[in-house]
Amino acid sequence: MSNGQKVLFLGVYGMEVVECGGALAKNVANGGESYATIMLCRETSQPQVRKAAEELGVNISFFNFQYGTVDLSVESKLKLIKVIREVKPDIIITQDPEHSFHDLDPDRRPAMTLLLESIALSSRDFGLEDMPGLEPHPIPTIYYMTPHHPNTVVDISAVWEKKEKAMSMLESQMEFSGMHFEEMLDPSAAEIIAPGFSNLSSHYEKGRAIHKALDKAVHVYHGLATHGHFALAEAYRREGNFHLQQLIK
């Protein structure tokens, strides 16, 4: 019997599909279907993000929103609503509202309002004349990724190598991170996090080395550390209460 669900990830930036790639890949491994659509991803980076999604078994598409222009227009809402009604997800994963207000990446805050409004409107009779053949879709269960205050962790130990391989495919992001870490980190500190950092010859290699260390630290923290049950885990915050017929262990 399949334990898989139909999961839709609504992302702002491309790397996010890998950040929650463990849950998406595990859903596919369990017989489910995982989809992703990204609001902001440069066309030059899209082939890399697509390869990463393919490694995870995720069907991905891109909206091609422009940086600094994300808004609450009807046109923007209809783009997201159409995807939700086409996929008909059981679960939506998206960015955490609290996290989005503290993160200084551009467009996070208007994107969060746009995402939640679109999820809400997709269940109503809004915009039906603009998408013939599609019906309102009830609001799915929502999980917020990388939250400040998680209430859920997902064991991703079995798909860890897939997730790491997918991250390696994000060449532009790794190069950007390599330049960033080279500037911000004291050389001795960089060596503690990623031994041999100073000997790496490219920004890609430097970015990937630090990300490998960060990835393992974050996922071990949410998994094995703090009295956890899993070796490696992704953290999420479920919107609303868990509705159970009886208590579960």
Rank of each mutant, 00 (worst) to 15 (best):
L170Y: 08
E33L: 14
N30C: 10
L56H: 03
A36L: 10
S201M: 12
P136Q: 12
I60K: 02
E33I: 10
T141D: 10
A29F: 08
K206A: 05
L80G: 07
G240M: 11
D107H: 04
E183H: 11
N151V: 03
A36S: 14
G228I: 03
S177W: 15
G14P: 04
E117P: 02
V87M: 09
K212T: 11
L8W: 03
I38H: 03
P140H: 05
V12L: 12
E205Q: 10
D96R: 08
Y67M: 13
K79E: 01
G228Y: 00
G11Y: 02
V159G: 00
G57A: 01
L104R: 10
I192N: 00
L170E: 09
E234L: 00
A231Q: 11
L247I: 13
E117G: 05
S123W: 05
H211I: 00
V87S: 10
L78M: 13
K82F: 04
V87N: 07
N64W: 03
F9L: 11
H102I: 14
T44Q: 12
E239D: 07
S100C: 13
Q173M: 14
I93G: 06
L56P: 03
A23S: 12
L115E: 00
Y143A: 08
F230Y: 14
S73F: 03
L104S: 11
F176V: 08
E129C: 06
E239G: 01
Y221R: 00
M174F: 03
E16V: 10
E55N: 06
V7H: 05
E135C: 00
A225V: 06
D125H: 09
T146V: 14
Y204M: 08
G4A: 10
Q95P: 02
A111G: 14
L214H: 13
Q245E: 10
K6H: 11
L128Q: 09
I91P: 02
H149F: 00
F181W: 11
H211T: 10
A233I: 07
H137V: 14
D103K: 01
S177K: 12
S123N: 11
I38Y: 01
K51H: 03
T152D: 00
Q5M: 11
L134G: 04
S202T: 15
A52N: 11
E234C: 06
Y144P: 09
A209V: 06
